[in-house]
Design a protein around this nucleic acid. Structure first.
Length: 689
DNA sequence: GCAAGGTC
């Protein structure tokens, strides 16, 4: 038997091949330089077999509309909810597809080794689709692994399963809906707003996406919370005891009062008999926990918060570090190291470094690495860790700082929690209670290598229970409640993760996208505020009574997808329900689009063009009485034509333009990528009015 | 020229 084995990416294919062949694999080039082919022997289903292993680079196929639906001017976006869609190979991956087709011909079996998550299952079915098309009697298997380690992939090969169609179906529904909704709303928003605000919108695209809008929504919500915040004045008592050059502050047990008079009365009472009596002194151990093994989300948050490198840039550099072999795969949700990983060796790589070498040596000399184990695993990738040591001086600046962050995080999580002793002294002044704290750090441990956490000692006098002293001062301090902070990028990523908007691999992209679209902007280089367009859009949809920027729509959809994965719901049913829902939303939006114009007009300085459709020409089909509105502008650019969705696959002799003229072309059009697509129309169109 | 999800 000869099996074709296909992984989701080259790196996975290579490592799986190494593990299964004990390093005896030989490699050759595939048709695309990034995706190599590895060959070795292995035992499959109790039989010695020839193995050919190659990979994709993520999804192989993508969705598209046919002919007229592809063109922004030649169809009503409403039709995109029902227009037929097709999957085709992503143009840059055609060589990968050809490699699969060529390699599978010589094989009798196919083993899918894509990542063991939802998207991976779907990618698996794309591989099956391509391979089955050239070889129809293939024996097909799915390898399920919990990590790409020798142990895990060998177990997977001994326990081959069948691919799970339900999971893949859920992804198909997700893709198709995101695509239809995204295309319909994006075209509508863009085409309309370009006409209503030609100066402000210009040629830019006003996109709608099921992740873009909730992300924008988080920024708007926080901005409003800050804007609408009403500060409330408060008053509080503070006590200070300075002696021998050491100043100790005591905090009031009541924290603060919102009644100035009451606070003044208590202050006066304390000032009248200011002698403080120490009522209690406790000292107890306190520790600060070392970080968990590093995930993508934590990496992005640290880079953004501590190094001021934004998530998109951080991921681009992480990708480069990974490609250079310095760090492990950067997209991971896993925060625990697999048992079989040799952490001692990985720590040992760093013992010669001038900055953290001694720390690494210290870990090895004191019982070895003992990382905390988290509770998340994506089943394919370990946490992010340095795979190789390099002198930081050899790297350019942002890369060096990110490599250092990965190394320091790794060494910190392999180290021990910081330990300290916290002393709390409680005092009583005229029956008011205050407490002061002191912290003595007894073992800094991980903090010595991890500058991203603060924990510092604070001194306190040595007090004894029953002792009395005269405070240096007892003050009445006024203040006012403060608004929440605007969102930083790290906060935004946290919210996205919490509400299930996007994935670890896409958070940074969505944030970048809404910046690019001018929906949000960085206020002071650090915090996000809505930009005029983003704010106006959210307000416009709200005036229509829609909450498209709230995360619950996406959350509901995710719940449906889960039901499909588990076989509890039919994909066609969910698809139909969601399409119907969004179609209704779309109709409402187009009917009340003037409310969006109005909201934006209040934000923009440009006066809106109040009748953006006055130049439109109505087309009507004589046979079906279907109506189509076309702008004069597009009419001049090229004649609108109608593609009949049902007959699309039939190659027809001629088609008819919306102005009634027929063309004798073969009935094939080319798409933007120069590829031929069939479209047809037996309907006749004519201009009305 | 549109989405979101993978990935180089």
């Amino acid at each position: 038997m000869k099996y074709l084995n296909v992984a989701e990416k080259n790196n996975a294919a290579k490592n799986i091949a190494i593990h299964l062949s004990q390093g005896t694999q030989i490699w050759r080039e595939g048709l695309l330089q990034y995706n190599k082919i590895y060959e070795f022997e292995a035992e499959v289903l109790g039989q010695k077999s020839q193995m050919v292993m190659t990979s994709l680079s993520g999804h192989l196929l993508t969705l598209d509309f046919y002919g007229a639906y592809k063109n922004w001017q030649s169809c009503n976006p409403l039709e995109l909810f029902d227009a037929e869609v097709f999957k085709s190979c992503i143009i840059k991956y055609e060589e990968i597809k050809k490699t699969l087709e060529r390699e599978v011909r010589g094989c009798q079996g196919l083993i899918i080794w894509t990542d063991c998550d939802r998207e991976g299952e779907n990618i698996g079915f794309q591989i099956i689709e391509v391979c089955s098309a050239v070889k129809n009697d293939l024996k097909i298997f799915r390898a399920k692994f919990s990590a790409i380690t020798e142990f895990s992939v060998k177990i997977a090969l001994q326990n081959l399963e069948q691919p799970n169609k339900n999971i893949s179906d859920a992804v198909d529904v997700r893709q198709e809906l995101d695509f239809r909704i995204g295309a319909a709303f994006t075209r509508f928003q863009t085409l309309r707003l370009r006409k209503v605000f030609p100066k402000t919108i210009g040629k830019s695209v006003v996109s709608y996406g099921s992740c873009q809008f909730p992300t924008l929504g988080f920024v708007v919500e926080r901005y409003r919370a800050v804007e609408n915040f009403v500060a409330e004045p408060f008053w509080k008592l503070t006590v200070n005891h300075t002696m021998n050059g050491l100043s100790v502050d005591f905090n009031w047990e009541r924290v603060r009062l919102f009644d100035q008079k009451a606070c003044r009365v208590l202050h006066d009472t304390c000032k009248e008999s200011p002698l403080a009596t120490v009522t209690d002194v406790t000292t107890k151990p306190k520790s600060k926990r070392r970080p968990l093994p590093l995930t993508t989300v934590e990496f992005e948050k640290l880079a953004s918060r501590k190094l001021n490198i934004n998530a998109k840039k951080a991921m681009d550099f992480a990708e480069k570090l990974y490609m250079d072999g310095l760090t492990s795969y950067p997209r991971t949700e896993t925060n625990e190291f697999p048992e079989e990983m040799n952490l001692e060796q990985l720590v040992g790589l760093h013992t010669d470094d001038p900055n953290w070498g001694a720390f690494a040596q210290n870990i090895l000399d004191n019982g070895g690495p003992t990382p905390r184990q988290g509770n998340k695993s994506d089943g394919a990738h370990p946490p992010i860790y340095p795979t190789k040591y390099i002198d930081g001086q050899l790297l350019k600046l942002p890369e060096r700082r990110l490599y250092e962050l990965i190394v320091r995080s790794f060494l910190a999580c392999c180290s021990k929690d910081a330990q300290g002793q916290e002393t709390t002294a409680t005092i009583n002044i005229a029956n008011e209670v205050f407490s002061g704290n002191g912290l003595m750090i007894t073992a800094r441990n991980y903090l010595d290598v991890y500058p991203y956490d603060d924990w510092s000692s604070t001194e306190i006098h040595v007090y004894q229970s029953g002792q009395t002293f005269n405070p240096s001062c007892i003050d009445l301090v006024d203040g006012s409640t403060s608004p929440p902070n605007l969102l930083t990028e790290a906060d935004l990523i946290e919210l996205m993760e919490e509400h299930g908007i996007g994935t670890d691999a896409t958070h940074a992209n969505h944030i970048e996208k809404i910046k690019e679209r001018s929906y949000v902007k960085l206020d002071d280089g650090i915090t996000f505020v809505p930009d005029l367009l983003g704010m106006g859009l959210v307000e416009g949809y709200e005036r229509i009574g829609l909450n498209l920027s709230k995360p619950h729509l996406r959350a509901q959809f995710e719940a449906d997808l889960k039901a499909i994965s588990e076989g509890r719901k039919q994909p066609q049913v969910v698809m139909a329900e969601q399409v119907a829902k969004y179609k209704e939303v779309y109709l409402k939006v187009t009917a009340e689009a003037n409310k969006i114009d109005g909201a934006l007009a209040e934000r923009f300085s440009e006066k809106p063009n109040t009748d953006p459709n006055k130049d439109n020409v109505m087309c009507e089909c004589r046979l079906t009485c279907k109506k189509l509105t076309v702008s004069k502008e597009s009419q001049n650019k090229g004649r609108p034509f109608y593609a009949c969705p049902k007959d699309i696959k039939k190659r027809c002799k001629f088609f008819q333009w919306a102005d009634g003229e027929t063309s004798t072309s073969s009935g094939w059009s080319t798409n933007g990528r120069g590829r031929k697509r069939a479209y047809s129309s037996s309907d006749e169109w004519t201009y009305g009015e």
